[in-house]
Simulated scan of single mutants.
Amino acid sequence: MRMRRVRMDFRISQFRSFLVLAETLNYAKAARLLYMSQPTLTAQIKSLEDSFEVRLFERSRQGVSITAAGRELLGVARGILEQVEQAGNRMKQAEASQPVRICCSQAGQFEVLPKLLRTMAEQHPEIQMEFKAMVPGERLQALQSRRVDLLMMTLPVYAEDVQFEYLCSESMVAVLPDREPYSSMTEISVAEFVREPLLTVSAKECLRCTPLALAALAQHGVAPVRLVEGPIDHNARLAIVAGGRVAALAGKASSQLHFPGVIRLPFRESVQGSQMGMAWRNEEVSEGLHLVMEELRRLTGGQREPVVSVRNSEVFPARISA
């Protein structure tokens, strides 16, 4: 006897509907349990019957009964759903085993990143984390080319395939050479700070770092007497400040680090300039990345709006010297 070839034209949801109806033998009750309309359930069962070219249920005045073919399908349908569930669990485990790759700007490396790594290790040890060090000009391309999964950075990103969310703003402190009059001061005003040339970052290394710093000072109606371009590396910048001829701005969290010849003073005024945000690809995120992002929001308070605008029109002009 030649066996009929079954048309493989069915969905997992149809097997689920079949099992619920087989258990209840009541279309109305099964539809309620499945959160669907009775016509939708009827259509799913009819489609499944058409695929196998058999009757799975019989309707009569006495009610609904399952056919011999339907009883044969019961074990198969349960097995299929179990295998699908097991496959889903294995895929989630495989996804979780893939490390979440993070690139963090220097502003977040002093406080936010250590807290994040410690919290994830304690609460989600199954999530592997990888930290990637990159210069600012490489970060967006690395995110778009899937070399990293999340950017923790101080400037917004504008790209169609990338989403950016502000998290928090950090107070700025004055970074000054350890000499008089600064060595005997406990705080400094913005007006006193701008008397020193300001160490900035080359536009080649960070396009908007300098406008961001100037905008923070411009909120108080002042501008540095002169700008001096320097490297973006934090230790290299501290070494230049220690030389005694320039001052710099840094996030408050960087005060935890000691560097000979340099002192950090809080401002008398509130100088908010270092904005921390996160950027990720505009697509469905993995479970591990979702957990990392939620933890970042919790750690930082999830502030959504920037505190300091970095539009160039708001920045006072200043002369740049080599």
Results as ranks from 00 to 15, higher is better:
residue 306 P to Y: 06
residue 199 L to Q: 01
residue 199 L to G: 00
residue 319 R to I: 15
residue 74 L to M: 11
residue 282 N to L: 10
residue 60 S to Q: 12
residue 90 R to N: 10
residue 322 A to R: 14
residue 52 F to D: 07
residue 153 M to H: 14
residue 9 D to L: 11
residue 132 K to P: 01
residue 278 M to I: 15
residue 134 M to T: 10
residue 131 F to D: 04
residue 274 S to T: 07
residue 154 T to W: 04
residue 280 W to L: 07
residue 9 D to N: 14
residue 146 R to G: 06
residue 260 P to I: 09
residue 256 Q to A: 08
residue 29 K to R: 15
residue 212 L to W: 01
residue 216 A to K: 00
residue 15 F to I: 11
residue 80 I to Q: 08
residue 71 R to T: 09
residue 183 S to P: 00
residue 283 E to A: 10
residue 243 G to A: 08
residue 219 Q to L: 09
residue 55 R to K: 14
residue 114 P to G: 08
residue 233 D to I: 06
residue 111 E to Y: 05
residue 121 A to R: 15
residue 298 R to Q: 11
residue 155 L to E: 09
residue 303 Q to P: 00
residue 147 R to F: 03
residue 159 A to S: 09
residue 228 V to T: 09
residue 235 N to E: 09
residue 67 T to Q: 05
residue 107 A to D: 03
residue 200 T to C: 07
residue 175 V to Y: 05
residue 136 P to K: 04
residue 146 R to I: 09
residue 199 L to C: 03
residue 223 A to E: 07
residue 250 A to M: 05
residue 322 A to L: 12
residue 264 R to K: 15
residue 211 P to S: 06
residue 68 A to D: 13
residue 24 T to K: 15
residue 320 I to Y: 06
residue 216 A to Y: 00
residue 307 V to Y: 09
residue 295 E to S: 09
residue 28 A to E: 14
residue 134 M to P: 01
residue 72 E to Y: 10
residue 168 C to M: 13
residue 121 A to V: 06
residue 186 T to I: 10
residue 292 V to E: 01
residue 37 S to P: 01
residue 34 L to R: 05
residue 275 Q to F: 05
residue 315 V to D: 01
residue 32 R to K: 12
residue 205 E to M: 10
residue 252 K to H: 10
residue 309 S to I: 03
residue 111 E to A: 08
residue 74 L to C: 08
residue 125 P to F: 07
residue 92 K to P: 02
residue 169 S to W: 01
residue 269 E to S: 04
residue 73 L to T: 06
residue 49 E to A: 03
residue 251 G to M: 00
residue 299 L to M: 10
residue 109 Q to T: 11
residue 51 S to I: 08
residue 161 D to V: 07
residue 86 Q to K: 14
residue 247 A to G: 11
residue 135 V to D: 13
residue 149 D to G: 10
residue 276 M to A: 02
residue 240 I to S: 01
residue 303 Q to E: 13
residue 301 G to P: 02
residue 125 P to L: 06
residue 19 L to K: 09
residue 67 T to N: 03
residue 317 P to V: 05
residue 181 P to C: 12
residue 253 A to V: 01
residue 7 R to P: 02
residue 239 A to R: 15
residue 193 F to P: 01
residue 84 V to K: 07
residue 289 L to F: 09
residue 274 S to F: 14
residue 263 I to K: 01
